[in-house]
Structure formats: structure tokens, C-alpha cells
Amino acid sequence: MKGGEALELLAGELEQIQAETAEILQQHGTGRQELIPIIQEIQERLGYLPKPAMEQVARALDIPEVDVYSVATFYNQFRLNPPGKHQIKVCMGTACHMMGGHIVMDSFERRLEIKEGETTPDREFSLERVACVGCCALAPVVVVDEKVEAKVSPIRVDGILLTFEIEKKEQEKEQQEGGAEE
């Protein structure tokens, strides 16, 4: 899925988005300075900023929707589409770049067959670059689902992805076995 493409919501998703957003809005005031903390919380809960949520926030703070959109499209943190189940963030800080961060990024792009900033069609993985996670001495660094992987080589890239594949297969197997028992 590419960054700009609009996304169809599944049945029930809209209601969930609205309920979560309303709950978050209740805990905040209605001043403009609440905007960023509010949308940060929405993203933390929902994984991204759905359009209906942004509209709801705009109404609550009494500002034009486009002002919410300006903020959401300005900062690196905000995502307008749902991320993959596993988020891979490749550090592109100075030290990581010099120690081969771009080669690691290339490897992920090649293995996952997506470009940075994209999500795999099965929504399993999304690939992002981060400016610096502050572990320069352990370069090149990749953050996989909040876990920092140090001194990553292209071979390690295969290893990381393989771990997830095995995990997924085991889960499927468990589910099948679980289903058979019933």
C-alpha cells in the first residue's frame, strides 16, 4: 500500500474509530495546544490517523479539518494509513549510514519487495526510516517492533524476517491444531 492511497474502512471500523477518538477527546481540553497530544494518542491506539478521527478532532477543537491535516502531514511521526503488523525502522543516522545503514535498508526493500515508507500488501510488515535512535555506537541499528537490533548486516536482515516467518507458521499450526481439537 502506498502512502497517498485512500483506504476503505472495514465494517465496524468506523464505529471503533469514533468511540476511541471520543474517549481520548474527553480527557483533553479544547484548546489548540491539545491538538498534537490528542492525535499522538489516537495514533498510539489505532496505529494511524484515520480521516474520520481527524474530522472529529477538528470539530472538538473548533478548527478547520485542514489545520489538523497540516499538522498530521508535517511531522514524521504521523501516519495516514494503517501500519503493518510488524514495524521495521531502519536507522539512517550518520553513524548508521557510514556503517552501512543504506545497505541494510536496501536489503529490507529487496526482501520485502516494498520501498521505504510502504507496507507489504499482506499488511505484515511496514518499512520506515528513522533519523537516529541514539545508539550510534552499535551502528547499523534497526528497530523491529520497539526492539533495537544492533550491528545489523544484510544476513541478519534475512534472520530477522525468518524469525517472523517461523513465528507465523507456528501460530498457524497452533490455530489448525486448536481447530482440530474442537
Binding site: P64, V66, D67, Y69, T73
Partner: peptide, 10 residues
């Protein structure tokens, strides 16, 4: 005071 347009992206 319509609020239809703004600066988007960076």
C-alpha cells in the same frame, strides 16, 4: 474564515 485550504506536507 472558511478554512478549506492550508499548507500540507513539509
Amino acid at each position: 474564515e472558511v478554512g478549506a485550504i492550508g499548507f500540507i506536507n513539509r
